[in-house]
């Protein structure tokens, strides 16, 4: 337990941030996010936007898998739903960006609700397979519902335009994605301060006794599916504005594994874990690309091995974290903080 954290009111003890240190960290993070664009590099801005999109999506999956205990192998398909929704509405009707994003979330949430329906009869691993089935079926729809999805060639997405400003480049898009990301992550954090979030965790830990203390599995499992898909949908919508084209290949099945890996590596069932996981997993391929480039003088065809090595590393990260650090990076972070908080004492 941390020392020196006595509170004088329940409100303080139930606060979003429990210690001054946490408030300072949050302040630093916000300042960092505001100042980050000063680096001026287009590459870094692109990466920052991508990371934040993945943070939103991972947080969504974390709500479903990490907090509610329902493994989903179809998360990327919900992102695809969001991306197509944005492409469709913006391309066809030129509707405002924020409305499109809300629609992206809402459509994905609606489909997520439907996919969640089997969760009332089946659990755990069966459910994971059902979500896989749903993503296969969604993939079929994307490929074959040509009038809406553009079939194999997909859809082009217009530039996001807010109040006449075109957000054509990552450094501008940043100012759309960053606030949305912050708001959605804080909202998720809030969720778990209330009865709704507690009900999710109760279902994860022991679904039968959850029912006996008055939690409706029906309502809360579906709610968790819908919320998770909403996050994925919004993330997918932002993704569409970043990459400006959506095809059936945009969100392959492997992308679902990417988000699952992010949740596990970061720390399932903690909000900060979802953030860590998304940042870490997004940066790994970039790091590999840099290393491959650096290796070219010695291994001229190092870049061919990029994709396989990335797959191996993703897989090993999932396995390694599950075996050696099931609570993920969040737990390592907690231990590190604790070490310094009590320094020079050891525990």
């Amino acid at each position: 337990m941390r020392v020196g954290t006595a509170k004088e009111s329940y409100a303080a003890d139930e606060g979003l941030f429990k210690t001054d240190t946490q408030k300072v960290w949050f302040g630093l993070l916000m300042a960092g996010l505001l100042l980050f664009p000063l680096n001026g590099s287009n590459y870094w801005m692109f990466l920052a936007v991508l990371v934040m999109i993945n943070v939103i999506s991972t947080t969504g999956l974390n709500i479903l898998t990490g907090y509610t205990g329902q493994v989903s192998l179809g998360h990327a398909a919900f992102m695809a739903v969001g991306a197509y929704t944005v492409a469709f509405f913006d391309g066809r009707f030129d509707t405002p960006v924020l409305l499109n994003l809300v629609l992206a979330g809402a459509v994905a949430a609606g489909i997520g609700y439907l996919v969640g329906l089997p969760s009332l009869r089946i659990k755990g691993l069966y459910l994971a397979i059902a979500t896989l089935a749903a993503s296969v079926i969604l993939g079929f729809v994307f490929l074959n519902w040509t009038p809406v999805t553009g079939g194999l060639r997909g859809l082009n997405v217009p530039t996001a335009t807010i109040a006449g400003i075109e957000l054509a480049t990552p450094d501008r898009l940043y100012w759309l994605v960053m606030p949305i990301c912050v708001v959605m992550v804080l909202a998720a954090k809030n969720l778990f301060r209330t009865r709704v979030g507690r009900a999710f965790i109760a279902i994860r830990d022991r679904d039968i006794s959850a029912e006996i203390i008055g939690i409706s599995l029906f309502k809360y499992k579906l709610m968790s599916f819908a919320i998770s898909s909403f996050y994925a949908g919004v993330a997918g919508g932002l993704w569409a504005y970043l990459f400006r084209v959506v095809t059936p290949e945009s969100f392959p099945a492997l992308a679902s594994i990417f988000f699952l890996a992010a949740v596990i590596v970061g720390g399932a069932g903690t909000i900060v874990g979802g953030i860590f996981g998304a940042v870490f997993m997004t940066l790994i391929p970039e790091f590999l690309k840099l290393s491959a480039t650096a290796l070219v003088p010695w291994f001229p065809d190092a870049s061919i091995y990029l994709a396989p090595v990335r797959n191996i590393i993703f897989g090993l990260l999932i396995i390694g974290f599950l075996i050696f650090e099931p609570m993920g990076l969040a737990e390592m972070w907690r231990r590190t903080r604790r070490y310094f908080a009590l320094w020079p004492f050891r525990t």
Partner: peptide
């Protein structure tokens, strides 16, 4: 551990095996 962890390990294994073959 709980069966879900082992299940997820096999998901990781999928990715590793594909990577090894492609490598």
């Amino acid at each position: 551990d709980n069966p879900v962890s082992v299940f997820m390990v096999t998901i990781g294994l999928t990715s590793v095996l594909i990577g090894v073959v492609e490598l």
